[in-house]
Write a protein that binds this DNA or RNA. Sequence first.
DNA 1: AGTGTACCTAGAACGCGTTCTCGTTGCCCC
DNA 2: GGGGCAACGAGAACGCGTTCTAGGTACACT
Lengths: 197, 197
Amino acid sequence: MGTSLPASAPQKQRAAQTAARRRRLLEAAVELAHEGGYDAVQMRDVAARAEVALGTLYRHYSSKDQLLLAALADQAGTLRNRLAQRPPRGDRPGDRVADVLRRATRALTREPSITAAMVTALSAPESEAAAAKREVFETLRTIISGAVDGASVPDLDGIVRVLGYVWLATLSAWVGGMVDADEMAADLALAAHLLLD
Amino acid sequence: MGTSLPASAPQKQRAAQTAARRRRLLEAAVELAHEGGYDAVQMRDVAARAEVALGTLYRHYSSKDQLLLAALADQAGTLRNRLAQRPPRGDRPGDRVADVLRRATRALTREPSITAAMVTALSAPESEAAAAKREVFETLRTIISGAVDGASVPDLDGIVRVLGYVWLATLSAWVGGMVDADEMAADLALAAHLLLD
DNA sequence: AGTGTACCTAGAACGCGTTCTCGTTGCCCC
DNA sequence: GGGGCAACGAGAACGCGTTCTAGGTACACT
């Protein structure tokens, strides 16, 4: 396969190919997640759709959860950028945080299968993936931080961290069927107002 | 086997046997969890240790997660009763809730393998088990409620629910290797004080 | 040119959750 | 006291995550 490509840049060609493979793998994972959630993301199918051998998939992502977490890190970054486009509405910090959480939740619930797949990976125990999970959590906290803006409360970091926990737990509860999307949104708004107003 | 037992009460005997089997299954699950966490709770081993056929295990608990959640519901109830023995210390509601959460966390981290196994089952997506998960969550909220006692804040139920979320998320983060036990305890105390004082 | 090394493919193989098959046994009811 | 029935035992079988094997190919260093 590689020999059929134009050898335009004989040096970095290899690196570009593996980067393209990684991208195809993430895309395939997201597509399959879109079609059927966590269970539909089967490693053999991901590899086949990305036109990559199964062993290669495992070389890049050492488990299914790591693969989904990498995809989640992507999506979370995109979400953060998209939310940062337009500043949150509201006078009080609690209002602004509630607004940004509401918009984020709307975006996530619009793609329930993808979100479910990724949140499942996020709440899996696998401590090998702790770093990847912390990265996602960090992005969530950044999203919240950006909305707090000028709050005049002490221990702002603690508040943001607690809100991050609540966000994770409500997402997990929604994916697990414990609450529906409306309850999740309501509890998030409640937490924002309780902690910031 | 049944014929070798004394036919003392020929009517309820069957029911008593199946109740005993269920108890043995839960005990076996907890023992195996104690020995090696979630992964060590293998359905074939649970069945063998409880001296029950694999199909019988699945008749009583339709999945590994349901089995562990049943065990967790047990343990959570026991924990609640044990905590209710002695009222929490502290003048302000936040202090009392922080105290009871601290004691609960100590109890849970004293048996890390068992806790990890059960929290793993709790944060698994399986929406078949939503009812079992809600029951556990309800018990956690009861534990918190008992410590709030006479707080003069509005929307007490909401605060308790949010604290329940934080508890779940910190437990899940601890099991997933995102935070250590000290951070978990600190964040729980922080949330209690932020929300109640 | 030759050797090492990293990455890749194709596919078999393994482990464990889950399901299925088939035979057996005790209990209820007519 | 015989027929239906729900629960059980023993074990095979299936699905999917993960690992392993046996090669094949391009780039680096000498």
